[in-house]
């Protein structure tokens, strides 16, 4: 019996590795883009331009207040009605970037706002430009506040990549779905899926815990 299971496992494993590779690609590309976009938005969200602040606030509220699946459906099924036709892979990346950047934006804005006004005033009254103030004085301090929840958010985002399976991207979860209709060992299939997600998430969970302890000092 065990031998049978094992041979099944060997048989399906390459297929899962392909799914894992796709998940890793989506996760990596979207984490990078979420981070860039999230920091960009977060800096303006905490800035002094009221108009930009409001606009970003609406964006964040909308993204955080709707289910991710619905956002993916809108991008993949509704945008084509307006002439924007995306293949599943880029649609998945776009959806991830929009969703993730909204969460990261709030983390970044919160971190920047935790720095006292006096730091801005000291930096600006010494003649530093706004960008220098941010780069040299504010962000190095804000990163202590931002990093632990940011890495925590990365873990959530990696797991959220499983949702893009609904539009047919052949990532890990989709591979699980496709496999389980062909072979009867459902428990084994989804355990394997779970373990593979865990393998990429867990190091980040450890990193988040480590940063939380280190930054608290």
């Amino acid at each position: 019996m065990m031998a049978f299971y094992f041979s099944r496992l060997v048989e399906i494993f390459p297929f899962f590795l392909k799914g894992l590779w796709m998940t890793t690609q989506i996760a990596f590309i979207s984490l990078v883009s979420c981070t860039l976009l999230g920091f960009f938005l977060g800096i303006f969200r905490s800035g002094s331009n009221v108009f930009l602040k409001r606009i970003i606030g609406v964006y964040v509220a909308f993204v955080r207040g709707t289910p991710f699946v619905v956002q993916i459906f809108i991008i993949f099924f509704i945008l084509p009605d307006w002439g924007i036709q995306l293949k599943a892979f880029p649609a998945a990346l776009l959806a991830m970037a929009i969703m993730g950047s909204a969460f990261i934006c709030e983390i970044v804005a919160g971190g920047i706002e935790s720095i006292s006004r006096g730091q801005w005033e000291a930096a600006s009254s010494s003649g530093l430009t706004l960008f220098q103030q941010l780069r040299l004085v504010i962000m190095p301090q804000a990163m202590r506040v931002i990093l632990p929840p940011l890495v925590g958010q990365y873990v959530l985002l990696i797991k959220d990549t499983s949702v893009v399976s609904v539009i047919g991207v052949m990532e890990l979860t989709r591979v699980g779905w496709v496999t389980v209709v062909r072979i009867p060992e459902g428990l084994m299939v989804f355990s394997l899926v779970g373990i593979l997600y865990f393998v990429i998430s867990y190091p980040l969970i450890l990193l988040s815990n480590y940063l939380e302890r280190k930054m608290a000092l």
Binding site: A123, G127, L128, T129
Partner: peptide, 17 residues
Amino acid sequence: TKLRADIGFVFQQFHLY
């Protein structure tokens, strides 16, 4: 920037980095 570079400002709460 030019103006502020020529004026030193010392705060009640120091505001060192």
